[in-house]
């Protein structure tokens, strides 16, 4: 299958290894990955902070870039959540009904990585190898906006050598929330503290998730604690092999 990669501005800029892992993984599974080069950002940060007018050109750009493809994948539950649940709304609010209709059509074929693999491509065993103790944070937007369910866990369960440990209170928000983490830094930090406590209680070497933003938050906290537990995106674990370990 030919899949267009929406790498997300965050992974593009700060976590390129997540994008590279997504490409490696899909190509290993025999799919063709294309990278529409004029893509930038889905506009989620603007929309969630109240700047919907500024988000309209970003929505238009996303639609124009990805309209030609049958399937779009992003290694981020929250960016896909924004594409699916906000793009058409933003266009409508700006009075752009035609753009809204196009956005709805692109959104319907835009998938979060685990959704694409399990629900569209029908694979659970991606042939990965990752001999480490891992706990998985399901992230709010994957869980509640996209309803990916246990797709990420089904993928992880098939990874050779992995020791998967259940995260207590996994469905609780890590406290990131985009600009919430800065505007309400104290509350965000209190939520993060509980998430880290649960992560550390599992004794995992690696805390994984399907969203670089939540991982940046959790990982930033774990790094500050010098906890020794590192964060890795789901794509990086699934891309990992004996020859090319993550």
């Amino acid at each position: 299958m030919r899949v267009a990669l929406f790498v997300t501005c965050l992974a593009d800029t700060l976590f390129p290894s997540v994008g590279q892992a997504t490409v490696r993984l899909l190509e290993r599974l025999g799919h063709e990955v294309v990278f529409p080069s004029e893509q930038t950002c889905c506009g989620q940060m603007h929309i969630n902070t109240g700047y919907q007018r500024e988000a309209v050109p970003l929505v238009r750009r996303f639609v124009e870039q990805f309209e030609p493809y049958d399937a779009v994948v992003a290694p981020s539950g929250s960016c896909v959540g924004s594409v699916r649940h906000q793009h058409a709304m933003v266009a409508r609010r700006a009075g752009e009904e035609a753009l809204a209709l196009r956005a709805e059509s692109v959104a319907a074929r835009t998938y979060e990585l685990s959704q694409l693999l399990v629900d569209v491509l029908g694979v659970e065993d991606v042939g990965a190898h990752f001999p480490h103790r891992v706990t998985y944070h399901p992230t709010c937007h994957s869980l509640r906006l996209l309803r990916v369910g246990d797709a990420p866990l089904r993928l992880l369960q098939q990874v050779r050598g992995i020791e998967l440990v259940e995260l207590p209170d996994a469905d609780q928000c890590c406290g990131f929330g985009g600009t919430f983490a800065v505007k309400n830094a104290d509350t965000s930090t209190a939520m993060l503290a509980d998430k880290m406590r649960h992560v550390l209680s599992t004794g995992a070497e690696v805390c994984s998730a399907g969203d670089s933003s939540c991982l940046m938050h959790i990982g930033g906290g774990l790094s500050r604690l010098r906890s020794g537990t590192r964060t890795l995106h789901l794509a990086e674990i699934l891309a990992s092999t004996e020859k090319e370990p993550a």
Binding site: F15, G19, A185, M216, H217, G221
Partner: peptide, 23 residues
């Protein structure tokens, strides 16, 4: 305003090469 972030969290230093540059 980013001090609110670093009061409790580190931020990864940007990598040498972005994804699009790598591609």
């Amino acid at each position: 305003p980013l001090a609110g972030w670093t009061s409790s969290r580190d931020l990864p230093a940007p990598p040498a090469e972005s994804f699009r540059a790598w591609w």
